[in-house]
């Protein structure tokens, strides 16, 4: 999953980013102002955007309206210092999906971010199941039947993304775009390495293949 944080207070942005990376394994980009934020939100396929309202150059409300005007369906979580009813209503009406007020709890911010990602992908439950595979996004554990599977961080991220989009064809490019932040060199062959590792671990003691290859197009997770 890939998250964009638009926040002008560098320390706050860094703290949120660190928390998202460490506890959710998300790829995180930071935009220090509204213009940069708009630019990134327009060009990159984020799974959720965290938006501060008080921003230099272009304030959060303008950014939000611009993102929605471009037809982007990315869920937007607004971080605001104002919690009066009028501004909350105005925010939601401008296309925000949720909001947290400063000073927020990092745990709550994380939970809301995860919930927005799930809803954005049409997955209401935090526990995703495909056949006998069970992926718990809260404590990041994977089980097949009764057997717990230990994955590397990168393998988990690949599987988590695929599990959020079951039965859909996910290209290597899409995986790359959603698993790495802006500063990474993207090589598609690393995806093949993670997929083969995943297949091996998932199929241990089970004959049924769950990750299928659609030749020339990408991967499908289904039973």
């Amino acid at each position: 999953m890939r998250v964009l944080i638009i926040e002008d207070e560098p320390r706050l942005a860094e703290n949120i980013a660190r928390s998202l990376r460490e506890s959710a394994g998300y790829a995180v980009d930071i935009a220090p102002d509204g213009q940069e934020g708009c630019f990134l939100a327009e060009d990159e396929p984020y799974d959720v955007v965290l938006l501060d309202l008080m921003l230099p150059q272009m304030d959060g409300m303008q950014v939000l309206k611009k993102i929605r005007a471009l037809g982007k369906q990315t869920p937007v979580l607004v971080v605001t210092a104002r919690d009066d009813k009028e501004s909350v209503v105005a925010l939601l009406n401008a296309g925000a999906d949720d909001y947290v007020t400063k000073p927020f709890d990092l745990g709550e911010l994380l939970a809301r971010t995860k919930a927005l990602i799930r809803r954005g992908k049409g997955q209401p439950s935090p526990v995703l199941t495909i056949a006998d595979l069970e992926l718990n996004t809260v404590n990041r554990t994977v089980k097949r039947g009764d057997r717990a599977i230990t994955l590397t961080a990168m393998e988990y991220r690949v599987l988590e993304y695929l599990a959020h989009r079951p039965r859909a064809v996910v290209s290597k490019t899409e995986l790359l775009e959603h698993l790495y932040d802006y500063n990474w060199e993207k090589f598609s062959n690393v995806i093949e390495v993670y997929i083969s590792g995943l297949r091996r671990k998932l199929n241990e003691g089970s004959s049924k293949q769950l990750i299928h290859t659609s030749r020339g197009q990408g991967y499908i997770l289904h039973d």
């Binding site: 706050l12 400063k102 990092l106």
Partner: peptide
């Protein structure tokens, strides 16, 4: 609120 949010998030992520 912003400086308090910064402080709080720093301490929380430290404890994480």
């Amino acid at each position: 609120k912003t400086p308090v949010a910064v402080l709080k998030s720093t301490l929380q992520s430290l404890l994480h």
